[in-house]
Amino acid sequence: MLKLVNVNKIFHPGGVNEKVALKEVTLQVQPGEVVTIIGSNGAGKSTLLNVVAGVYGVEGGKVILDNQEISHYPEHFRAAWIGRVFQDPLQGTAASMTLEENLTLALRRGHPRRLRWGITSAERRLFKQNLALLGLGLEERLAARVGLLSGGQRQALTVLMATIATPKLLLLDEHTAALDPRTAATVMDLTEKIIAQHRLTTLMVTHNLEQALRAGSRTIMMHEGKIILDLHGSERERTTVAQLLNMFERASGNSLVNDRVLLS
């Protein structure tokens, strides 16, 4: 489904601030596979997602989605196949537009925007059905501005928006990290439900090691722009959080100083 071949990403090449964010990264993701990505700050997790989404171009290598090379397509072009949820709940929705307008924009992902009437009544019914599944009572507030919703509600809405036009690939960039624990759990449950329902191929960055092992079917660990660990199958099932921490220390050759990873 998704294939990265020797992908290099360098920020500010040639300058004093040169930073190699991805080093010869190669990754192959099977259709329907849900991959969780862990690693300390600056390991290249978010860069990896952004390179796939087209936010950044690559300095070398290829990004292939569904047997089609997409390395040179701009971000908005790739968006036809890729759904995304960001860490910041404010980033995934347009605050001054209504719920139904936000959902309509999301439903048209991958279609040209014409001078055609925005929302049909059939679509409104579809939105109500889907919002009801969230269990947040949002189906009664189609005409409310999204800015009036809480962070958790907005993030749940963003997950729905990323998947309402079924994408080939779903990218989740620590999408529950900015929420309080209870809301985070709700949004995560919802995400897993939607992923299972559509059998979505997913890349999910997380700081929560327990979540990384529990959710999905495969876990990769990144360090200094490289994939240093790739767990799946029975090996992954037997792994505990403590072991994962150990593996990290061994593989990266230094102790883990990022307390955000330790504490989560």
Partner: peptide, 13 residues
């Protein structure tokens, strides 16, 4: 309103 969001929804801003 939110350039990043609408670009991620496939619109050429």
């Amino acid at each position: 309103n939110n350039e990043q969001m609408i670009r991620s929804l496939g619109v050429n801003t």
